[in-house]
Design a protein around this nucleic acid. Structure first.
Lengths: 170, 170
DNA sequence: ATATAACCTACTTAACGACTAGGTTATTCG
DNA sequence: CGAATAACCTAGTCGTTAAGTAGGTTATAT
């Protein structure tokens, strides 16, 4: 469990397409939808918050479309996800809107600290990856499917590679 | 976003209660429900998978209830969550059931590697905390609310503390 | 024998995610 | 100019699922 929404998933894929095309004009939603096998109508819904967050720019009319407003290397996955879904917050008492004391179970709650740490850990992963990183792995292709139990120490991927530790699991 | 279900949240709280009571007989669901302000009927639904996973044991009849089947220090949060919700898998193509190739978007998918890493990072956090850790923080009380931006390097909490890195955020 | 509490199955309901539909505005090009 | 294009915007549908209820059966202590 701990699902991420299709919204975030699709949005990230679309942003990766825009990142690939960065420097070569813009891509229309229809073009992106074709490549990524998504509904263009739905993509439109994702484009809006991304534009409002200042991550992409739209150009109207024929040969219009969207383009990244920053180089891919300066756009983190975390920015994209947060623009689409809001801040990562596994439980309600870790959202910005939460007013301290409003949860009856607050005093002596031991589990909150768990989710807080999960939250931090997710943020750290998302903020350590840029769209440029994703383009690189997508281009190479072989990284798309990582066999479970065979994760390499990160190394080349991720700009904060030094601090992110992906231990071998199971 | 990246919500965790109430199911997992409540279940973990219930398990923490059982951990506190470990060694002093068992607790009935009604007792747990009172302390944690939860519905006893709903708790019953959570008790079942926990029992089937071998994490708790039930005793019927008067003065019956549930008790942990292992000492709290040997029960990780990850075991509890996985018993309640199944394996952590942000996207479908990271579940055990996923058959490789069934996603049209699989070739050249750059985003999968992101979710894979998120998955690992979550698992690592959950597996590094035991119920005993949670009891300790709950007992101290002050840990229940960690001001954002003021997270200490882990140290005393978590048995695998050496490998888990929670960097200061923002 | 009775009360208690685990154990089990099925149902309800409200919320939400994932789209679809149908429109308006701006821009390019013939 | 006007027609085509594509962003921009709002609202509605529809299916799924989480969350919680209801109503029962079995085992055990007193």
């Amino acid at each position: 469990m701990l699902h991420v929404s299709q919204r975030a998933h699709y949005g990230l894929r679309a942003m990766t397409e825009l990142a690939k095309a960065y420097g070569n004009g813009c891509l229309s939603l229809v073009e992106i939808a074709e490549v990524e096998h998504l509904s263009a109508g739905y993509l439109e819904q994702l484009a809006m918050p991304l534009r409002r967050a200042g991550l992409i720019e739209g150009t109207r009319g024929p040969h219009g479309g969207y383009s990244l407003s920053k180089p891919p290397a300066e756009l983190t996955v975390g920015e994209v996800i947060r623009a689409l879904e809001g801040p990562v917050a596994p439980v309600e008492c870790l959202t910005d809107e939460y007013v301290q004391g409003s949860c009856i179970r607050e005093p002596g709650c031991g589990s909150r600290v768990v989710w807080r740490r999960v939250q931090q850990s997710i943020d750290q992963v998302l903020d350590s990856l840029t769209l440029a990183d994703l383009c690189a792995t997508a281009a190479r292709g072989e990284v798309a499917f990582i066999p479970i139990g065979d994760i390499k120490p990160i190394g080349e991927l991720g700009r904060n590679s030094g601090t992110v530790r992906c231990a071998v699991t199971r």
